[in-house]
Write a protein that binds this DNA or RNA. Sequence first.
RNA 1: GAGCCGUUAGCUCAGCCGGUUAGAGCAUCUGCCUUUUAAGCAGAGGGUCCCGCGUUCGAUCCGCGGACGGCUCACCA
Length: 501
Amino acid sequence: MEGDETEGRRQKLQAMRDAGVNPYPNDFRPEHTTREVKTDLGEADAAALEAFEGVFCLAGRIVSRRDFGKASFLHLQDRSGRLQVYVKRNIVGDEAFAAFKQWDLGDFLGVRGRPFLTKTGELTIEASEVHLLGKALRPLPEKWHGLTDVEARYRQRYLDTVTSEEVRETFRKRSRIIQAIREFFISRDYFEAETPMMQAVAGGAAARPFVTHHNALDIDLYLRIAPELYLKRLLVGGFDRVFELSRVFRNEGVSTRHNPEFTLVEFYQAYATYRDMMDLTEELFVELADSIVGSRTMSWAEHALDLTPPWRRVSIPEHVAEKMGLDIDAVRGLDYELLRKAGDEVGGPLRQDYRAKYGEAAAGYLLMDLFETIAEEELIQPTFVEEYPVAVSPLARRNQESPNFVDRFELFIGAKEMANAFSELNDPVDQRQRLEAQLQHRAAGDDEAHAMDEDFLRALEHGMPPAAGEGIGIDRLVMMLTDSASIRDVILFPHMRPDKP
RNA sequence: GAGCCGUUAGCUCAGCCGGUUAGAGCAUCUGCCUUUUAAGCAGAGGGUCCCGCGUUCGAUCCGCGGACGGCUCACCA
């Protein structure tokens, strides 16, 4: 049992307390990081270190140790990295050395000492003082292999990160990506908003929401599936450029690409179109690739990606017409029978009865499914997919020439949807009709159809400027920029079933 | 929700065709050791083989059911 080792550590802890020693003090103040030592002296030779008069003061976890009778080597790990420390009995003194002998891997240690170079040439701190700063009762994972059990890595992420510099680096990159996105929008005069996470109507996307209850008001509230409708209210309210970067919640399954809560940046710009959003997206992704990866080409899983703009653009009706050998005008005309025949040819889920579920909007949904079935696997390099049917885009502006379609794109990279953008629908009459159509879909059994939102419609009726908006899934973006195969590798604490009691 | 695969010591993993007391490395404990770095040498302890039921003289191993996880699919971003 793990109890063996933990029990031994508990006994050491009790022995310290019995001897009047505090095993959890908080009076040691490190003055340097291990990286600072290496940065200052990494190039110095033995003679230079001999002449060096400074003393370093460090704190961190003991992550390895090699004991001798009257001396010991260990590695100390802090937030910046790890550094070797040499503890010698005749320097720290008999009493301190005897105490030090009782300390374990995983314990927190404070060290003061001067640098030197070992025989093997490793920069090392020769301790003049050692202090126990915190006793660990449970051991760290095995030093060589670390923690490889994926379940344990996710459930006890702290063990994963304390063991793996690579994992720590992935999450540092995530933090830098989020910071860079903020700076990207703020530098373009966007206003950062915080809108409600709990909403009376869960709108702005097609997804099932989580439900919660407000006791004092005695109403059900929904965790938001998107901030979209509130950000549009801010367009009405005079914020011409607005973004929000935070969590949304969707009551769907989990997979390597899905977590029930995920991070989204949504941004809206008045007097812009979805085409402007394409340019902005290319700029953002290139900037992130340059700063995070250091290159516009990168590998993601089995793919070699090239983010150099301009990115490919693919029209849904054109692609379907071309691949299926159909007449483009008939496809744009949303000829249901024609698409039905094509769907039967492709087979699979496309055989279902779209008319029963979607009524007059059936052809639009069918076209989308057809496109996804025949094209999604090809969408490896960055690709803007455009010309979406009105029926699947209840919040997007109609195309001026082609009213069955909207001015919208989705960005695909590595066959994954990375972003969704459109010129926003600011015609309140059209918006009301679209939401009413969604209500019919809901009544016919589509429980992800958009809900009616009278409060939002009232805001639109007060006047929203022409605008374009976009949402980018941050987790998938981080996956791409860190070459991660699973969304759980870029979310610190991914959702899992509760562990056995 | 479906299919496939997995679960053995604290960690990383072996374990043959169903057969005595389930093994190794690291970690832990004891002893020696003042330039090691997966330190070394000598010794020791540590197991609900995920859980339950069944088959069998006998089950870590075979069958059925369940839990949890991974992957793929479905839903979705």
